[in-house]
Design a protein around this nucleic acid. Structure first.
Lengths: 245, 245
DNA sequence: CGCAATATTGACCATCATCAATTGGCGTGG
DNA sequence: CCACGCCAATTGATGATGGTCAATATTGCG
């Protein structure tokens, strides 16, 4: 319960200023939340579902994905604790993709009815949540650029930069290392690459002394070099908190 | 003026039910709109700008795009009359991409202050606009799947299906033909392909008797075949108008 | 009529996928 | 405590998809 409040508050603070009355609303929502556990490689929500709850990650690691007819998977985003990957289900009733765990994961569930009621009462919270979905969209766009126009080396560097920044923003990393409990196949599925090519390219990044990669965690050895290799500019994450007037 | 009201209303109707009091708000906004003309290949807004207006396309054809350091361009979405490609600038002050014309284009400009005031007064309109940005994001996700995991033939088929459905939803096409005033280079920039490969692949699609393509317009000769080739499932466009309770 | 932009076609090449075999890490159970 | 088995990672060999370069054809348009 306390963890739900803490995480939700911290997450919203990365999105914009959180006024006092919004904090009350957050506490109310947290009180009404239901906690649930999922094993690794299980769906929180599946394509074509019509959920009546929103899901916040409490611990673990989650992704949104789609599977194409030939069986290959495209991961469209990764989500760390504090994220609400299906916030959109508030207004898009039918899921157009799945949300699945990559490791054992604990989540908090908020009923749509509760969320809508609270958002109505608190316009600032409404705007923060809207802004959250807009930042999501900005990340999708940035990934499109990577998949469409950058080569494997830059794509991987970019992804590892993004995750570093997001982990830091939420306070999950302070030094040069952060936890990344996903496989190279997952990375490939996110970047439109094969697991084999991810392995080779990570090897290159290692040999370039930009990072150390081991299953479970990444250590950034040369941030500037990595950011340059990945053409990484964090503008699209909109941590500037420059909310409109 | 009347055209602004008509287009905006029609657009919102493709997103969800438009109640009577929302219609009044739409008229108010339309009254306050400023009309502006752009030549082909000009930016409506550029990356890093901090616009204070939202832009609705009135006529012409527009895209969102980013340019990577080596000069190549990734188009992230196409926009037809009625679309508001920078609606997000209401809450994300700094543009993380550019919006540019592909042909001579007329737009309507709505001041952020006007929009925010109206959205505050009319929660239904607020939700419709939020839903619009969520559908945008859904389209980004679908494009990511295409670029990451589908081959050129399917990617192009998919794009032409999507544009067909969107043109029809807005009433810009009834028969099997619709206007598409863009070059093959533009298509390539949208799908992560070279103009050369787009040319070849369009040739294949033509030889498969799925469509006729000429500069300026597309004729779909075999909808089912094209949709199958593109693995096209319109769920992600959320025309179902199944707004949450 | 002629220019400029776009589309087409051919030849060659790069990136990355696929297939396959091997290695390494780690938990489980004897 | 060690052997087994499973999953992920690595490495090598080969091939496909699509990129790049370049020349030619076509179209639109002043």
């Amino acid at each position: 319960m306390q963890r739900v409040i803490t995480l939700l508050t911290r997450k919203l603070e990365t999105i914009g200023a959180v006024p006092a009355d919004a904090r009350e609303c957050i506490e109310e929502l947290a009180t009404l939340a239901r906690i649930k556990e999922f094993a690794a490689a299980h769906d929180l929500v599946s394509e074509f579902d019509r959920p009546d709850v929103c899901t916040m990650v409490l611990s673990g690691f989650v992704c949104r994905y789609k599977v194409v007819p030939d069986g290959r998977r495209q991961i469209m985003s990764f989500h760390i604790p504090g994220d609400i990957p299906d916030l959109q289900s508030l207004f898009l009733k039918t899921m157009d993709h799945s949300v699945g765990t990559l490791v054992p994961t604990q989540v908090a569930l908020f009923a749509h009815t509760d969320v809508l009621r609270v958002l109505k009462r608190c316009p600032e919270l409404n705007h923060l949540c809207w802004r959250d979905t807009l930042i999501d969209a900005a990340v999708f766009r940035e990934w499109m650029v990577g998949i469409g126009r950058r080569k494997a080396y830059a794509r991987i560097a970019h992804l590892l930069c993004e995750l570093m920044v997001r982990m830091r923003a939420m306070g999950f990393a302070s030094g040069p290392e952060y936890e990344l409990p996903i496989t190279q196949t997952d990375i490939g599925d996110a970047l439109g690459l094969s697991n084999v090519h991810v392995s080779r390219t990570l090897g290159e990044l290692r040999r370039s002394k930009l990072l150390a990669f081991r299953p479970g965690a990444v250590t950034v050895l040369d941030w500037d070099g990595l950011a340059q290799a990945g053409e990484f500019d964090p503008t699209y994450l909109h941590f500037d908190t420059d909310v409109a007037a």
